Simulated scan of single mutants.
Amino acid sequence: MSETAGSETAGAPTPVPVRTIISPSRYVQGPGAITRLGEFLAPIGSSPLIVADDIVWGFVGHDVESSLKAAGLPVRKEKFNGIPTAVEIDRLVDVIKETGADVVVAVGGGSTIDAVKASGFLAGIRWVTVPSVASTDAPTSALAVVYTEEGAFEEYRFFPRNPDLVLVDSQLVANAPAAFLAAGVGDALATWLEARATSRSNSNTMAGGLPTLAGTALAQLSWDVLWENALPALDAVRDHLVTPSVEKVIEANTLLSGLGFESGGLAAAHAIHNGLTAAPQAHGLAHGQKVNIGSLTQLILEGAPTSDIRDFIEFTTRVGLPTTLTEIGLSVDDTDVLQLVAREATVPGETIHAMPFEVGAADVVSALKSLERLSRRVRDEAGLAAPELYHAKH
């Protein structure tokens, strides 16, 4: 596929192709799970450093402190400053070394989690993720997405292992605005589309090898679970309820999508997301909202059956995800910006090159421009109004 998934050094012998799957050491999910964090953390380290922003700490801090104290662990907390930049990551490395922590714990969203994974790796200690929302599949993976100070995609960083523990409190997720869960659905729906493309092209995955049957199957399972459960789960979360559908969607957004994207493969959808981060107009959108535009664009690039594209537009509109350029702050007349997005999405090493056919920047621009009329027509025919979009960082 590219340098992003285990490229070879110039002059070195070509490595023997292998299939591989990677995963976190332990995954824990359930209502009230955060009250047992200390219990699951104690076997991993004796001197944890908790990293969280002030908003998240305001509603989980008491439970985290109580849980750690009950397990005989010290409570040290460091504030996360909002964007996983190289500077913020290096700052956290310094804090880890100053405190003598032997495990760093991310409590929060995908940005906090990526910064913690990167800083834990650089500091040479273990890392744990405790997502406060189910808006991305970052909690389970052995990579981090690093952004510029302006919020544009900068690079992927890959690590030799996944988190030692992923702990998800489903009641905490249900207490958050439903828009976060909807964004996670957008991120997770891409998993099967991209794994399917990677399997067809027999490209390398983020795990550093060819896709396994297991990784691809988990990606498809994530897709199936979401189509069956996303809408009732979102209804329940709007009332802050944890139901079986909510539990299934949390697992699909976090574990199944995480394993599926990493060991099943990424393709056009996430590359287009990365390109969209170069457009200032899209900086206020959540990760999964931009990914949904990428997924729809990938379907168009593939020449997918019209019925499949129509179903995807209708379903993701009902979920509350964008399907037009207008909804992400762009228009078909923003040719210069769309060309920038397309160039960034197709740079050497991007995951779009895992598609089973060649995709150029001009192809991406055409597909993006075609979204507006196509999605509006499909929604008009289905009697669907445009979704009300939540705006957040990453």
Rank of each mutant, 00 (worst) to 15 (best):
V291F: 14
S2M: 04
A354L: 00
A385V: 05
P131G: 07
V60C: 10
V95K: 02
V242K: 01
V185K: 04
T326F: 15
E251V: 04
H270W: 14
F59P: 09
G383Y: 11
G30D: 01
T324V: 10
G208M: 09
S295C: 09
T277E: 02
A268Q: 04
A382E: 02
A115I: 05
D235G: 06
A385G: 05
E8K: 10
P131F: 02
E3I: 12
S111H: 11
K97M: 09
G209S: 09
L122G: 08
D137M: 09
L321E: 02
A269E: 05
L368Y: 07
A178F: 03
D114L: 06
E88I: 04
E3P: 00
L172K: 02
A70Y: 02
R310Y: 04
I89K: 11
T9V: 12
G320L: 03
I55C: 08
G320D: 00
V332N: 12
T326P: 11
A268R: 02
P322L: 08
V51R: 04
P74D: 00
V378I: 15
A219Q: 03
S331C: 08
N162Y: 07
E327M: 05
V249A: 11
P163C: 13
S7V: 12
P305S: 12
R310L: 01
V168G: 00
G264A: 07
T4F: 12
T35P: 01
I272P: 07
G215V: 10
V319Y: 02
V16K: 15
P31W: 00
A367K: 11
P387C: 07
A345T: 08
D224K: 10
P139S: 14
E194I: 05
G124H: 02
L213C: 13
W127P: 01
I352R: 05
L165T: 02
N175I: 03
T346H: 04
V56G: 01
D311T: 06
A197R: 12
S132N: 09
F357V: 07
A278R: 13
D164S: 10
F158I: 15
R196N: 10
D363E: 14
L368F: 07
A361V: 07
H353Q: 15
S170Y: 00
